[in-house]
């Protein structure tokens, strides 16, 4: 596209987009559909990395399978695209073998809370030092729009063709109940908040959980006649209330209903590794070398 072909004044073609150094530019453009919110969360994550000031060599990202599972492969980090639902246990091994790494798990709601649900609750229980970003779009996008554990009641999906009658997960409540030390939810309308939460998650020691609500215009929105991505962001804007410190049991989602966003949990608890090191130092006085030191 030549400069002349552009319309409007003051519009420059430039490649120095501040997020590009955080992306594998040789893999772009990405595979996500027009209006898919995953790319916006990645944009926020790139800015969180930038603002964190962390050395990119010290950060690793692990994804599972699905549309959001592709995130790892687009980040200019040591990146791991693992199996469906198993990003968290992979990340657990990576983190424990090299505790100096900041390990980020970045995956979708189906991946993390259905097939990966067991790993999710146990990593939170152990307070494994991982930052978990869950892009919640209420559907299985990669396979064509099936019901997820987060699909609100009443929404239609290909495997709930007459509307979903299952009770969905309230993921912040689940993470909180299992012991996560940082729990936040934002939408891709709240990009500044989301980027800040990710920055806080990167700095937080222990299991941090950030849920990012994001539209899936191709499958979830279209099947439910909700319009395009912009329409979903307008919904997020209209129906979201920021309630930092909200009791997570009250933040469940309903079909196109009110959304409570905010930083719900921010507390301190020893990580699994700190607990192990502290305990074994007491058990073996003078003999045990703390792991990772």
């Amino acid at each position: 596209m030549s400069q002349e072909a552009l319309e409007g004044a003051g519009c420059a073609v430039e490649s120095d987009n501040p997020v590009l150094p955080f992306l594998r530019q040789d893999r772009l453009p990405h595979i996500w559909c027009p209006g898919c919110g995953i790319g916006t969360t990645v944009n926020c994550f790139a800015r969180a990395l930038q603002d964190s000031g962390m050395k990119l060599d010290d950060v690793a990202i692990v994804s599972g399978i699905g549309c959001t599972g592709r995130v790892a492969g687009y980040m200019n980090l040591d990146s791991f695209h693992t199996t469906h639902g198993r990003a968290i246990p992979f990340a657990t091994g990576l983190k424990l073998a090299n505790p100096k790494l900041k390990v980020v798990v970045y995956s979708g709601d189906g991946d993390l809370s259905a097939i990966g649900g067991n790993h999710f609750i146990h990593a939170a229980r152990r307070n494994m030092d991982l930052m978990v970003v869950c892009v919640t779009n209420h559907t299985y996008g990669m396979t064509g729009g099936q019901t997820a554990p987060t699909t609100p009641q009443g929404a239609t999906q290909t495997t709930m063709p007459y509307g979903n009658f299952e009770n969905p997960f309230n993921l912040p409540f689940l993470a909180d109940a299992c012991g996560a030390v940082y729990v936040a939810r934002w939408t891709v309308y709240h990009v500044r908040h989301l980027a800040r939460a990710m920055k806080e998650g990167l700095a937080k020691k222990g299991f941090s959980f950030i849920e990012a609500l994001a539209p899936c215009p191709t499958l979830y929105s279209r099947r439910n006649k909700l319009g395009d991505g912009v329409e979903q962001l307008k919904y997020y804007k209209a129906k979201s209330t920021i309630k930092n410190g909200a009791d997570t049991k009250d933040v469940g989602l309903t079909f196109q209903g009110d959304i409570i966003v905010g930083k719900f949990v921010d507390r301190e608890r020893p990580t699994w590794l700190d607990s192990m090191n502290g305990h074994l130092t007491k058990v073996f006085p003078g003999k045990f070398t703390p792991y990772g030191s």
Binding site: V62, D78, F80, T82, T83, R86, P89, F90, A91, T92, G93, L94, K95, L96, A97, N98, L101, N118, H119, H122, W272, L280, V283, F284, K287, F288, T289, Y291
Partner: peptide, 27 residues
């Protein structure tokens, strides 16, 4: 503990069989 390393009892064998692979990429 006194050799210098790590054992973790995972939540199931699925987790165990991939946690070790994460650890390989940690060295």
């Amino acid at each position: 503990p006194l050799v210098g390393g790590m054992f973790i009892q995972m939540e199931d064998e699925i987790a165990s069989s991939i946690a070790i692979q994460g650890a390989v990429w940690g060295g």
